[in-house]
Amino acid sequence: MKHTSNRRVGVVVAVLSGLALTAATSTAAHADDHTDTRPDVIAHRGSSGMAPENTAAAIDLAIDQHADFVEIDVQRTKDGTLVNFHDCTMERTTNIEEIYPGRPRYRVSDFTWTELRRLDAGSWFHPDHTGERLITVDHVISRIDHTRTGLLAEISPCGHYTDIATDLAENLRNKPRYLRRALAREQLAVQSFQTDDARQFHTHLPHIPIGLLDADRPTDTELTELSTWADQVNPQHTVTDQALVDRIHQLGMDTNVWTVNEPGTMREMAALGVDGIITDYPQSLTQP
């Protein structure tokens, strides 16, 4: 199922836990698209240039700024709760060393959700955000559900996790009503830097669009192989040019570039015909 641009028309039917899900998908070629050429605006960790990343404040601000998607990062606590957090350790954006001094490690997976709920995840950004808490994936979904803003969930590449792609698939599988709405509106996709995680998620929920993140320019061999099962190739904007965008589209995939914060680069990427722009400042693209 191809995703991100709301510019293709078609229908795919998937069965999830015995429930038939009908979702609008895209099948027409990019060359035939003439109705909407604006890239999707994807708020990187929420509106993270204006609020502390991956908090409710950043998610809510992205919604208020009319972002098409919020991009989040999925990690797992010691007791199995899926949490929205980016770094492999928590010192940079929380007061975890103050609350739990002397711990041997400060990874999300070393703490229970009850422990993590005590952390301040906002004061590092600005005193006005003192007291902002970490939030779960479920909390993110509850905030965007019934809005025009969709979800792009990144499976954490932190190497100490196993089966986190399966856990995310199970979490989404247990939300059939949300899935039905999100897929029908083309408001859900998953991405990963790790090919194994992306394929594992795709095996569990093949009807949810799956993308591969890449900091380097993918080779044509890699693109051709990915086109047999992936829906998106999402490269760093610094390695993206017209030839790469055209080749990804030729192979039937979409492309979201990251992380684009300069207005000039935003215009450059839009001119290339990318399907989405991942940015810390979604208002730069959504507001006149």
Results as ranks from 00 to 15, higher is better:
109 S>A: 14
237 H>C: 06
23 A>W: 00
49 G>S: 11
32 D>L: 15
150 G>S: 10
187 Q>W: 01
123 S>F: 02
194 Q>H: 14
195 T>Q: 12
247 R>T: 03
103 R>L: 03
266 M>V: 09
144 I>N: 08
34 H>M: 02
107 R>A: 13
59 I>G: 06
38 R>H: 14
222 E>K: 12
240 T>C: 07
246 D>F: 00
67 A>E: 09
200 Q>A: 04
106 Y>M: 04
9 V>S: 12
99 I>Q: 05
102 G>I: 04
211 G>A: 04
46 G>V: 04
69 F>N: 09
201 F>W: 02
274 V>M: 06
195 T>P: 11
130 T>I: 04
234 N>H: 07
6 N>R: 15
53 E>D: 02
42 I>D: 08
243 A>E: 09
261 N>Y: 09
12 V>G: 13
82 L>A: 07
23 A>K: 09
47 S>N: 12
100 Y>L: 10
164 I>W: 06
235 P>H: 04
201 F>G: 03
59 I>Q: 06
38 R>S: 14
185 R>L: 11
224 T>S: 11
51 A>W: 01
41 V>K: 00
42 I>M: 14
102 G>A: 05
196 D>A: 15
130 T>D: 02
259 T>D: 08
243 A>C: 03
164 I>S: 01
121 A>R: 02
146 H>V: 00
40 D>A: 09
274 V>F: 01
115 E>L: 00
224 T>K: 10
18 G>I: 01
6 N>V: 11
65 Q>N: 13
145 D>C: 11
241 D>R: 01
142 S>M: 05
48 S>M: 07
195 T>S: 12
176 P>G: 09
4 T>R: 12
183 L>R: 10
139 H>I: 00
79 D>V: 05
233 V>S: 08
251 L>V: 08
60 D>H: 03
155 I>N: 03
12 V>E: 15
115 E>S: 01
237 H>D: 04
17 S>M: 06
3 H>D: 11
